[in-house]
Write a protein that binds this DNA or RNA. Structure first.
Lengths: 339, 339
DNA sequence: TATTGCAATAAAAACGTTTACATTATTCAA
DNA sequence: TTGAATAATGTAAACGTTTTTATTGCAATA
């Protein structure tokens, strides 16, 4: 089971030995504590370099269980969704700048995995957590908030607890998309929703309905389909919409992967976009321009979502007492050629 | 700095106390050691449940420095590249099945970050590592191999050391793509390479050259451009190719992101694919069918690359003595409409 | 001179596990 | 009835840090 470890990591003690000081002094040098003789400091630093000593993060974490260890946990619902990857990039950059390491867990929309990874992150003594809970009543996450561990939620809030939150204007973003469709003259505008238990899905739906109403279009329940955030969802539900005896002439897709799925269906059927059916997506991708046709979409500032949430988290770790903030970022309608 | 921790994690000792046994016994129960009285075991399990005890992974790892801790490190060159995300998914699934946790580090093609994350992973006492080194002479990674820590390389090998390796048939994949272009009648076939220091890039180039030769096409150095694995690279280098006085009539792109960049350029110029210029990509994406036009591409079995490498790694951790293996997976030409 | 204060350092405990070793109780053969 | 073997459990050390507390030496003060 154990591998033969030719390479034996050097410990603080060996440094201390070689430098002729105690482990405490070495520790003080490493952590830039005051009250160490400049000569001693220099000598110790010399030995550290010689022995190529690197501190053992695990020991450090165990010792400093409830101080900061420069370690953040990130709980990602679906790493295959480019939106979350972009969010992650924002988090990474801020973490890196602030010398925090990251443990990234992707639970692939699987609640069992979410629970497991959450336990692992806690057990790893992370200083704080960035998470997108599976739904508003995610008890596991709610308990963590209650426990006092610093946490920032992205994309989705939690009911009944006060928590730092970074979201986008879902309702307005959806409204602008559907309003745009309506203004273009589309009459039977469908909505393929992501998981309906997500606040974001419901907010987008309400934007959809409001835009219909404001444009004098009647709401038709058969034009709303509920899926999740997987590609297959988009494939299947767009088929249903096109199979209607009175089919949709435009589709508003609730997220990234649904959009790609819907495009696949439309292309497979040989329909032309936007002539036969128009499409507009929530979530933009940098390669949307290379889609067929270039996709019109509501852009979420994903990178910034990540950046902001990491900033908030680090702030909270530094100052646990600061009041929670709820940050709402703007979306932007990227008009191209799909409607 | 420290946050107020209302929620105090229970330790083994508290379980031991409450169950009226020693810490050793509790540990034995947790680890399913034999030689514990069934009644005692039951009682301890009861208390564990009551107290909602979860073992502290950090303490465990410190104690068992050189035994297995069910923890793997993954070093990803670019999390924004869907290819690596798919590889990661393969790794995750195997890890999950085998009860290994993962620390995923994305170094975004930045060697400084690579070094930092490598140090962190070592310092975290991972049982093993899956990495795609930045190049064949990546000393940091080579040293790890030499140290005896179990490691599997994906996509890229290392010179001078014997290491488990999972790659694809780069030369053959490229050959099939370029051969296909030639057979379609394209005469001025360009190649936009990824980083030339990567073995995979060079292998693909050799496939490109061989296919040209076998089809009686002369090699023209001005039709080969060297970039990296970023989107911008594809944008810029395809522009250069189209600006040639005698421009390319077909482009073979060396990877995912280059392909998307090239598509962007071609669309911006209002050129038609494949009539004005054809394109074929190394790396397929599941949404390639939704591109304009549906992209013909060489598919790498990314998920399987991840799966295999994780399997190899776990094997090596279990049996450090087994001889290294080098696994080469097949590619597949996905013919659609871009050439 | 005796005391105090300070700077520099050391000693030792603690974090939460696992495990080698020690101890006790029980069973069974001689 | 002894003794040995075995099963069940306990004790304590160890992993590599940080930090509290203690110690030392020395300079400054009364």
């Amino acid at each position: 089971m154990a591998y033969e470890n030719d390479y034996k990591a050097v410990s603080l003690y060996e440094v201390a030995d070689k430098a002729g000081v105690s482990s405490a002094t070495v520790s003080r040098v490493i952590n830039n504590s005051p009250n160490v003789n400049p000569e001693t400091r220099l000598r110790v630093q010399q030995v550290i370099k010689e022995l190529r000593y690197t501190p053992n993060r695990v020991a450090k974490r165990l010792r400093n269980r409830n101080a900061s260890n420069n370690l953040l946990g990130v709980l990602i619902p679906d790493i295959q969704n480019p939106f979350y990857v972009e969010v992650l990039r924002g988090i990474e950059d801020v973490a890196y700048e602030n010398k925090y390491a990251l443990i990234v867990c992707n639970f692939s929309q699987d609640e069992k995995k979410e629970k497991l990874y959450l336990d692992i992150l806690l057990s790893e003594s992370v200083d704080g957590l960035i998470a997108a809970p599976t739904h508003e009543n995610d008890q596991k996450v709610i308990n963590i908030v209650k426990s006092g561990l610093p946490i920032v939620c992205v994309d989705r809030g939690l009911t009944g607890v006060d928590v730092d939150l970074v979201v986008v204007e879902n309702r307005n973003g959806a409204y602008s998309a559907v309003d745009f469709l309506a203004k273009q003259g589309y009459k039977r505008i469908a909505y393929i929703s992501g998981l309906p238990q997500l606040p974001s899905s419901r907010q987008r739906e309400s934007g959809y309905k409001d835009a219909l109403a404001d444009n004098g279009l009647v709401f038709d329940g058969s034009l709303v389909k509920y899926g999740d955030s997987r590609h297959e969802s988009g494939v299947k539900l767009s088929e249903e919409l096109l199979n209607l005896e009175n089919p949709a002439d435009a589709i508003f897709t609730g997220n990234n992967l649904i959009t790609l799925g819907a495009l696949e269906t439309i292309h497979k059927r040989g329909l032309r976009i936007p002539d036969d059916v128009a499409i507009i997506g929530f979530d933009d991708m940098y390669w949307s321009i290379s889609l067929n046709p270039p996709l019109t979409a509501v852009r979420q500032p994903a990178y910034e979502i990540g950046k902001r949430s990491a900033e908030l988290l680090i702030q909270r770790i530094t100052d646990p007492a600061r009041p929670t903030v709820s940050m709402t970022l703007k979306t932007e309608l990227m008009i191209r050629n799909s409607c």
